[in-house]
Design a protein around this nucleic acid. Structure first.
Lengths: 216, 216
DNA sequence: ACCTGAACACCGTTCAAGT
DNA sequence: ACCTGAACACCGTTCAAGT
């Protein structure tokens, strides 16, 4: 309650209707209800009971809004394994959690892949945790980011794949007989999930092998 | 020169100004000159010397144009290793070629990841070649597509990462000390490439191990 | 400081009208 | 069959005007 340098304006103090938190929350609500195509500045303003132009007093652009959403999504990703569990176990559950989050927000993937993380506090915190966990697990400093980026690339690619329809590889059998057979030979229901699990297990096995070779 | 069933119209035969090939070629030219943001239907029409509405006599939508571009890009991907080289060597050069192609067309990545391949002949041909190569290499039918999709997810995620600025992980050292250190510890110039190479080598090592375990 | 309302410069797409 | 020109329904964003 320190006295403000400038005199208080008269009338009601008129607390702002909007804020980063409110805008982000409304955007999440909109996306969960009607998907990313419904996320327009006009629809967002409507959700907040405000004119579209009012948004621009709080957010620079729609792109910045997407970065706020990135940070919001990243906040939910599970990094708890780093610290108490072995690095490979922690990496595995992080990757699973990461993929699941962006399978629901796949439109963000192309944006976050090319945007500096500095402005996103939760995102920075996530990378700090992962980097520290890998270092503690014995990875040399000059390879930590390569491991992180490699896993992340696989995770984000898999998140996009998770949004694909089940029949994406269906094809007339006479055009591509081998493809038709191996596509038909896939068992179970969630093909995208199976491919992710195989890839992740494979990559972890390869990483363990590599770290062992480095140590020995 | 078989006689047409319908009588020839009088006047000049008026060969169409546009075709899938011409439109695709013009789009590629536009993208290479000024990037994907410059690829609008109006700009494309301008490039072809035609009214924007004329495009819709040949292409259903901008989305379909992007699928034509996908097929055009996939045609250039190197699958030559499958057939004469061992499956893992072929897979490695395929993955490299695949990543390079989509690093230059990263805007297509979110589109192709969710679009059925049936309408794209070169794309189907590519998957047929890869599937046949993996089968010939000893992979069981029910795992071939999991391997393909896992590699593809990693490749497409890496292609997005390749489009990122070099300083994407730069961060004030006091906020995230470990991150700042490991980011600084990366050697060489092309960090995205290094991460891809590490990830690909790792995944291939893991796959060889897995196939050996299956066989034994 | 923060909001409204009107306007702007684009998008992709449709459609009647011409040949 | 294939093109033009005008129109439509949106976008994100800006800005003067109000409080």
């Amino acid at each position: 309650m320190t006295p403000s340098e400038r005199p208080r304006r008269r009338g009601r103090p008129t607390a702002p209707l909007l804020s980063q938190e409110k805008i982000t929350a409304a955007a999440v609500e909109l996306i969960e209800a009607r998907g990313y195509t419904a996320l327009t500045m006009a629809a967002l303003a409507r959700q907040l009971g405000v004119a579209p132009s009012a948004l621009y007093n709080h957010v620079e652009s729609k792109r910045q809004l997407l970065l706020w959403l990135q940070d919001h999504v990243n906040k939910e990703i599970d990094c708890s394994g780093f610290g108490d569990r072995p690095w490979d176990v922690a990496l595995e559950s992080w990757a699973h959690s990461y993929r699941e989050a962006y399978a629901r927000h796949s439109l963000l993937v192309p944006v976050i892949a090319v945007t500096p993380i500095a402005g996103s506090p939760h995102t920075v915190a996530m990378y700090e945790t992962v980097a520290a966990g890998l270092r503690a697990g014995g990875w040399p400093d000059d390879q930590v980011m390569d491991v992180v980026v490699a896993i992340e690339s696989f995770v984000l690619g898999s998140a996009l794949d998770a949004a694909a329809p089940d029949d994406i590889f269906d094809v007339p059998g006479d055009q591509a007989p081998v493809l038709a057979e191996v596509v038909g030979a896939r068992v179970g229901r969630d093909a995208a999930r199976a491919a992710f699990d195989l890839g992740l297990a494979t990559v972890l096995a390869g990483l363990r092998e590599r770290l062992k070779a480095l140590a020995g």
